[in-house]
Design a protein around this nucleic acid. Sequence first.
RNA 1: GGAGAGAUGGCCGAGUGGUCGAAGGCGGUUGACUCGAAAUCAACUGUGGGGGUGACUCCACCGGGGGUUCAAAUCCCUCUCUCUCCGCCA
Length: 421
Amino acid sequence: MLDLKLIRENPERVAKALRDRRQSIDIQPVLDLDTSKREKLAAVEDLKRQRNEASKAIGLVKRQGGDAGAAMARMKEVSDSIEALDNELREIDERLKALLLNIPNIPHESVPVGAGEEDNPVVRTWGEPRTFGFTPLNHWDIGEKLGIVDFDRAAKIAGARFAVMKGAGARLERALINFMLDLQTSRGYMEMLPPFMVNRDSMQGTGQLPKFEDDLFHVDDGFLLIPTAEVPVTNYHRGEILREEDLPVRYTAYTPCFRREAGSYGKDTRGLIRQHQFDKVELVKFARPDNSYEELEGLLNDAEEVLRRLALPYRVVTLCTGDLGFSAAKTYDIEVWLPGQARYREISSCSNFEDFQARRAEIRYKPAVGKGTALVHTLNGSGLAVGRTLVAVLENYQQADGTVTVPEALRQYMGGLERIA
RNA sequence: GGAGAGAUGGCCGAGUGGUCGAAGGCGGUUGACUCGAAAUCAACUGUGGGGGUGACUCCACCGGGGGUUCAAAUCCCUCUCUCUCCGCCA
């Protein structure tokens, strides 16, 4: 959510940001509602002041045994006016909030202006894609031949976009989770294991609601399945005031993630790339506003480190304004090389949300010097998407004989196993 | 699932219709005393919003929402959460 003051005082800046994002949202209704809200607010507050004063006087008169009937009758009318104005105000507030909740974040000044994916500049490339003496297979062929991934039975027991991991495949998934958690906790992140279902307030806090209801799985009893650990972990501090000396607060969490993938029919229908349920190790930071962009670079580096340790070639791109997610001010995507597709595919997304989520979720900190409180900046990134990392391992480490070499870094998590055969 | 109890400021805890934004204590900040510290004493110490260049001022907030009343932390309804006992369960 944007600061209403910012929209009021810099409407041009907000309008430009929306244009850069290729969004056709008109902010004029927001400005109009804001104006009429403040007019009515001044009027009703004045009436309330009158009522407060009169009520005190009435109390005084009654305690002295006097008759305050006339004043009470007068105040009854004032109270009726207040009720009417309050109702109008409530309606305006609801409309205003509905509009504000659907306005995306303003891109950071360093974000390149562009229309879509094709305009995302590459920041850096790491590692050399391996040359194969044979035609590299897709991960689903590798997995099915080795008997470590089963899509058919997953479709039977659940449906499309599910997979059953088996034997060394299940072990590999678990090894990756443990490897990532061990790595990130050693780099200063506190491990967390949060609920996999949350309430609507949490979804609104991080920006999934109200706009992206269709992307979420709903559970009976009103819970929603998390599409990312970002939701429970960021909302962990919802409504709280953090101490400046504790910043930046860093958490890492493994969770499964659940996404309906509505609107992505026909995309990545085969394989593990796009599933309704997938594992992810997430990184979340709460930072001071003045250094949150340094924290973003650090978080990105922490995510990249996973791929470097696994010796998987990757590149980093900056999302341009047209490709930026709703809540993000700036996002780097890490894309891993997939020999089976002969291209780079997203494996992590690292974002600074500035105070956009913090304002929705009311996450603040108390500066060590000076008065008052300020909103923190929230950041998060995948460190990494486990399923896609498993895909990258299978495809990059496949051998001519159909076996897959286990990356050095994972062997201690696989009971010393060197090769999946 | 059944029965009961509760939710008040950073923390503990008073307050059952009127000068209560809320006693008291703890914690914190500042000052006095001290060579310094402790102890003691004093003052200050919540959040959000509106108006004003400003000193400042007004409004709201006692778990969330709604209601009764001239007036609600206090009365009523409802939701959420916590605790105790019983049942069930991994």
